Amino acid sequence: MAIIDLMAALMGVSMGFLAFLVIGGISGVSAWIFYPGPSQGLRPGKILLAFLLGVTAAAGSSFLGQYWGFFQSGQILEWASAIFASCAVACLFTALAK
């Protein structure tokens, strides 16, 4: 039983990380591509930076929300805060970079 509990705990952590990687990455890259304004084309360095900022914002909002007691892991408010934070940070970066 201890092995099953350990595997469930590890899978929950890794799946949460993968989910925030996908949420943050998609919102960061889509903000860079679809944000209005002059663009110099799809430069890989800027897209990678937008991707990393989105992932960091999603993970950071999840961590801070759980730390402050607003929600627990896996609740819909955690997902909503991760999506909002990653979109906001990605749009802010894109607005300043373009």
Results as ranks from 00 to 15, higher is better:
residue 1 M to E: 06
residue 1 M to P: 03
residue 2 A to H: 01
residue 2 A to P: 02
residue 3 I to V: 11
residue 3 I to P: 04
residue 4 I to D: 14
residue 4 I to E: 14
residue 4 I to H: 11
residue 4 I to N: 11
residue 4 I to Q: 14
residue 5 D to K: 15
residue 7 M to L: 15
residue 8 A to Y: 06
residue 8 A to C: 04
residue 8 A to E: 09
residue 9 A to Y: 11
residue 10 L to P: 02
residue 10 L to S: 09
residue 10 L to D: 10
residue 11 M to T: 15
residue 12 G to E: 11
residue 13 V to S: 13
residue 13 V to Y: 05
residue 13 V to M: 13
residue 16 G to W: 03
residue 18 L to M: 14
residue 19 A to N: 11
residue 21 L to Y: 11
residue 21 L to E: 08
residue 21 L to G: 09
residue 22 V to H: 01
residue 23 I to A: 03
residue 24 G to P: 03
residue 24 G to S: 03
residue 25 G to S: 04
residue 26 I to S: 06
residue 27 S to N: 14
residue 27 S to T: 09
residue 28 G to K: 08
residue 29 V to I: 14
residue 30 S to P: 03
residue 31 A to D: 00
residue 31 A to N: 00
residue 33 I to E: 00
residue 33 I to G: 00
residue 33 I to L: 13
residue 33 I to V: 15
residue 35 Y to Q: 07
residue 36 P to S: 00
residue 36 P to I: 00
residue 36 P to C: 00
residue 37 G to E: 05
residue 37 G to H: 02
residue 38 P to S: 07
residue 38 P to E: 06
residue 39 S to F: 08
residue 39 S to I: 12
residue 40 Q to R: 10
residue 40 Q to V: 03
residue 41 G to L: 00
residue 42 L to F: 05
residue 43 R to N: 12
residue 43 R to C: 06
residue 45 G to L: 06
residue 45 G to C: 01
residue 46 K to W: 01
residue 46 K to Y: 01
residue 47 I to W: 03
residue 47 I to G: 00
residue 47 I to Q: 03
residue 47 I to D: 00
residue 48 L to C: 10
residue 49 L to F: 07
residue 50 A to W: 05
residue 50 A to S: 15
residue 50 A to K: 12
residue 50 A to C: 09
residue 50 A to Y: 08
residue 51 F to E: 02
residue 51 F to G: 02
residue 52 L to A: 15
residue 52 L to V: 13
residue 53 L to M: 13
residue 54 G to M: 12
residue 54 G to F: 02
residue 55 V to L: 10
residue 55 V to M: 08
residue 56 T to Y: 05
residue 57 A to S: 13
residue 59 A to S: 08
residue 59 A to H: 05
residue 59 A to F: 06
residue 59 A to M: 13
residue 60 G to S: 10
residue 61 S to P: 04
residue 63 F to I: 12
residue 65 G to N: 07
residue 65 G to K: 05
residue 65 G to D: 04
residue 67 Y to C: 14
residue 69 G to A: 07
residue 70 F to Y: 15
residue 71 F to K: 00
residue 71 F to H: 11
residue 71 F to Y: 10
residue 72 Q to V: 14
residue 72 Q to P: 07
residue 72 Q to C: 11
residue 73 S to F: 12
residue 74 G to W: 08
residue 74 G to Y: 14
residue 75 Q to S: 12
residue 76 I to C: 05
residue 76 I to V: 10
residue 78 E to N: 01
residue 78 E to S: 10
residue 79 W to P: 00
residue 79 W to D: 07
residue 80 A to P: 01
residue 81 S to E: 06
residue 81 S to M: 14
residue 81 S to K: 05
residue 82 A to V: 04
residue 83 I to W: 06
residue 86 S to F: 07
residue 86 S to H: 13
residue 88 A to D: 05
residue 88 A to C: 03
residue 89 V to D: 02
residue 89 V to Y: 03
residue 90 A to C: 12
residue 91 C to S: 04
residue 91 C to Y: 13
residue 91 C to I: 09
residue 91 C to H: 03
residue 92 L to Y: 09
residue 93 F to N: 11
residue 93 F to K: 01
residue 93 F to A: 09
residue 94 T to A: 15
residue 94 T to R: 15
residue 95 A to V: 04
residue 96 L to S: 14
residue 96 L to T: 12
residue 97 A to I: 06
residue 97 A to K: 07
residue 97 A to C: 02
residue 98 K to W: 06
